[in-house]
Design a protein around this nucleic acid. Structure first.
Length: 801
RNA sequence: GCCGGGGUGGCGAAAUUGGUAGACGCAAGGGACUUAAAAUCCCUUGGGGGGCAACCCCCGUGCAGGUUCGAGUCCUGCCCUCGGCACCA
């Protein structure tokens, strides 16, 4: 054998990365692409620790997809950027005592280096950072588009206040009542005036469009649950004094069983409905509730508490007067903030009624004990509706009450409007000026961006007022409408607004006078393929869809869904747990890349488990994929010195099988099985000593998306002078892949007893005849008559005796 | 509680969706080469049993049933686990 040079990944990778950069080979023609393919991955937050293997796992999977599509002949645009604003970055800056404006550029520098080193096919001309004024100018512009359309408004509302962050956080950032970033800190409820985006107006469309998106089911389900659509009716309960109390219910069929009403303690009608003799009790209860944090209020299995208001309302179905209570198990944020309590058919109402000895009336007959919540039953104690099945009664009772103007069919959503105000420093200032005469006025477009001023002391405080208010020269400003003295909004916007439109910006980063160029947008968007983690299933993906929907309505973009095709990758865990700084199990890939090379690490990450499920990072098995690359290396070098010759039949067949499998698996992101198919193939080639050019070239093309540097190098070794990524993905011949003959399994009574080799497409009779000649089969048939034969063409024969 | 994943060798995992369970890889054991080591190559490797032997038999995909010629895959009822939602009316 000719001498094969050693495989030195450091050398090979440096060489090809330099060439790609020099040749601009990762920078597609954006204006006139023949076949545009926008390959998007979720941009990272540039943490101080650097890119970890979880990021690299996600980016490698997406990069393989991009490189594969490039080999299919697409002009692949694969941009990258940095989601660098936000409380995350700011808290870290606070903890190390460095200003984020100094820290972030350093972190980004590290990320850039790492992203280049692992060999991503990134178009660096279009890098962006959300902290760049040239970027957030347009984040502010988007805010103003919503503001002008009446979709951004100020509202005094109960909001989630994190005492650690000393800021309001969105509903989506509260987990079980605890702050997403501070799992030991309970979120408090504060009543503050905040900016909201009216996402609930789009709830129905956000929900319905899910059906036509090519997304994984798991992600769609998460969004569906988050939006939380409930169908039901609003029913009116009226007091003798004529006050109407609307309640929302999903079970109007149970209205005859509503034996009392419960309002949220904050309900605006409480004062008016409270009888004098009950006032002190009621007020005491309301104070008690106010003192509770959200967790102890919202967790369900506590004993019920409440207070009777001393007044009554009329049940619209029975005309009975039923008592009105307040209780903290009723939430002001949902529905009308008031419920009709049907203790016989609702677990919570049942507990409450039991506790306070309120009447329980069964109105749905089932075979379950009370409280029974099923809708499979028939009505009882319900006047003329007795005997009617629940589902029919739901419609008929609403219709009946509707005629009396006491009911309206209604749909409720769990989704709340998106609170975007943050009382923090590190974000884009909300571009609003307050004027005593004109009210809140949008900053005119010509004055954008409202730059975030540098302030030395950017610490938040518990006052609910942002640090920016301390910068007086920045704070005081003339009203753009009337010229009077005004002041700026000092809150910054939520980071999720930054990331809700970055994909629109990428193709147009060189334009300073527009957020995105209409022609570029027309060409490249919506995003062809989006790959990212399921941790963003509700936040980022929902917000991006909302923003896109609004922009579409305003005529700013020609589509209403940004990501028609989305795939979620799994999570890389370490020692059985999610990687996190607090657990101290974050793995940074640099040392592994140093030791093994980027190609090996890429391949390892893709081989350790299914891409869409993730897996455990254990460095012990890296050697396996490295051995595979070594074999490819050796085989290709040996082939370079050989005359081209025909492939042995077995190798040819395996080659076509392999191309078929690798093609479909790579397409479907089943990278782990694609890699094992390539391993099988190279093993066979070596076993058969068949390492010719004809055997190796297609292999290199298949390896190229996975281990791009190695593939380039070996492609050159085989004498090609153009990049392998300008070549075409190999084709397979279905007939060759299938082979001429097949092994058919022979079972007797469902147990495998033998195998026969026959021509593909052999008839049942032929196979039966052959099978009955097999000694072991005969033994089990044992002379008994064959009662039945089941034949699966080219696969299996089962003889039943 | 509700909604979704998932449970397969010592380990990571495959299995064309009802048709040979454990491909591929790691680890382990044995061997070849070597003064030696590394690297490389070959063999063995789910459990149990039988045979001088090429080999053969039984059991085996969380548990208990069921459907089927045939079940890791479908159905019923459980157990465990991961993720999401949760006093949402």
């Amino acid at each position: 054998m000719s001498s094969v040079p050693p495989y030195d990944p450091q050398l090979v990778e440096a060489k090809w990365q330099a060439r790609w950069a020099r040749a601009h080979s990762n920078e597609p023609e954006l204006d006139r692409p023949a076949r545009p393919f926008y390959n998007l991955m979720m941009f990272p937050y540039p943490s101080a620790e650097g890119l970890h293997v979880g990021n690299m796992f996600a980016f490698t999977g997406a990069d393989i997809h991009g490189r594969f599509q490039r080999l299919q002949g697409y002009d692949v645009f694969e941009p990258i950027g940095f989601d660098a604003f936000g409380i995350h970055s700011e808290n870290y800056a606070l903890s190390v005592g460095t200003h984020p404006a100094k820290l972030i550029p350093k972190n980004i520098e590290t990320f850039r280096r790492q992203l280049r080193r692992f060999g991503g096919m990134f178009d660096w001309r279009h890098e962006l950072s959300t902290t760049d004024p040239k970027y957030y100018k347009w984040t502010q512009w988007i805010f103003l588009q919503l503001f002008n359309a009446g979709l951004a408004f100020r509202k005094k509302a109960a909001v989630n206040w994190c005492p650690k962050d000393m800021s309001v956080v969105a509903n989506e950032q509260v987990i079980n009542g605890y702050c997403e970033r501070h799992p030991d800190t309970k979120v408090e409820q504060r009543f503050l005036e905040q900016w909201f985006f009216n996402i609930t107006r789009y709830a129905e469309r956000l929900l319905n469009n899910l059906d036509r998106l090519d997304w994984s089911d798991s992600t769609r389900t998460l969004q569906r649950n988050w939006i939380g659509r409930s169908e039901g009716a609003e029913l009116i309960f009226e007091t003798p004094a004529g006050t109407k109390i609307p309640v929302f219910t999903t079970r109007p069929d149970t209205v005859f069983g509503a034996t009392y009403l419960v309002l949220a303690p904050e309900h605006p009608l409480v004062d008016q409905l409270t009888a004098e003799e009950q006032r002190s009790k009621v007020n005491a209860y309301r104070r008690e509730v106010q003192g509770k944090d959200i967790v102890s209020r919202k967790v369900g299995d506590k004993a019920k508490t409440g207070a009777f208001l001393g007044s009554y309302a009329r049940n619209p179905a029975t005309d009975e007067a039923i008592p009105i209570w307040i209780a903290d198990y009723v939430l002001m944020e949902y529905g009308t903030g008031a419920i009709m309590a049907v203790p016989a058919h609702d677990r919570r109402d049942f507990e409450f009624a039991t506790q306070f000895r309120l009447p329980i009336r069964e109105v749905v007959r089932t075979d379950e004990p009370l409280p029974s919540v099923t809708e499979d039953g028939v009505l009882v104690n319900s006047g003329k509706f007795d005997g009617m099945p629940c589902r029919q009664a739901q419609r008929d009772i609403v219709a009946w009450l509707k005629d009396k103007r006491l009911a309206t069919p209604q749909v409720q959503y769990r989704l709340h409007d998106w609170c975007i105000s943050r009382q923090r420093y590190w974000g884009p200032p909300i571009p609003i000026i307050y004027c005593a005469r004109c009210g809140p006025v949008g900053v005119p477009e010509r004055d954008l961006p409202v730059e975030l001023p540098f302030i030395e002391d950017f610490r938040p405080n518990a006052s609910g007022v942002s640090p920016l208010a301390r910068h007086k020269e920045w704070y005081f400003v003339k009203c753009p409408q009337c010229g009077a003295q005004g002041s700026r909004e000092t809150d910054v916007s939520d980071t999720f607004l930054d990331s809700a439109w970055y994909f629109l910006r990428y193709p147009s980063t060189e334009f300073d006078d527009r957020p995105w160029d209409p022609k570029r947008t027309q060409t490249w968007l919506p995003v062809t393929s989006y790959i990212g983690g399921n941790e963003h299933a509700v936040l980022h993906l929902l917000y991006s869809r909302f923003v896109t929907m609004v922009l579409h309505e305003l005529g700013k973009v020609p589509f209403d869904e940004p990501f028609p095709k989305l795939r979620a990758h799994g999570l890389i865990i370490k020692d059985g747990a999610k990687m996190s700084k607090s657990r101290g199990n974050v793995v940074i890939p640099d040392a592994y890349i140093q030791k093994w090379g980027a190609d090996t690490v890429r391949l390892y990450l893709m081989f350790l488990g299914p891409f869409q499920e993730g897996g455990d990072f254990r460095d012990t098995s890296i050697i396996g994929v490295r051995r595979f690359l070594d074999k490819v290396w050796t085989t290709a070098h040996e082939a370079a010195g050989q005359e081209a010759g025909p492939l042995p039949a077995a190798v040819e067949r395996k080659l076509h099988e392999t191309i078929k499998k690798v093609t479909t698996d790579t397409e479907r992101l089943d990278y782990n099985t694609a890699i094992s198919a390539m391993m099988e193939y190279v093993n066979l080639v070596r076993e058969q000593g068949a390492g010719s050019r004809a055997a190796v070239e297609p292999l290199l093309l298949m390896v190229a998306p996975y281990a791009p540097h190695l593939a380039e190098e070996l492609w050159a070794v085989l004498g090609h002078d153009r990049s392998i990524f300008q070549a075409t993905w190999p084709r397979y011949d279905a007939n060759l892949a299938a082979g001429a003959d097949v092994e058919v399994v022979v079972q007797v009574n469902g147990k495998v007893r033998g195998r026969v080799t026959v021509n593909r497409g052999a008839s049942e009779a032929q196979v039966v005849e052959l099978a009955l000649r097999d000694e072991s089969v005969r033994k089990f048939v044992d002379g008994k008559p064959v009662r039945k034969t089941i034949y699966v063409q080219d696969r299996l024969l089962n003889l039943v005796v």
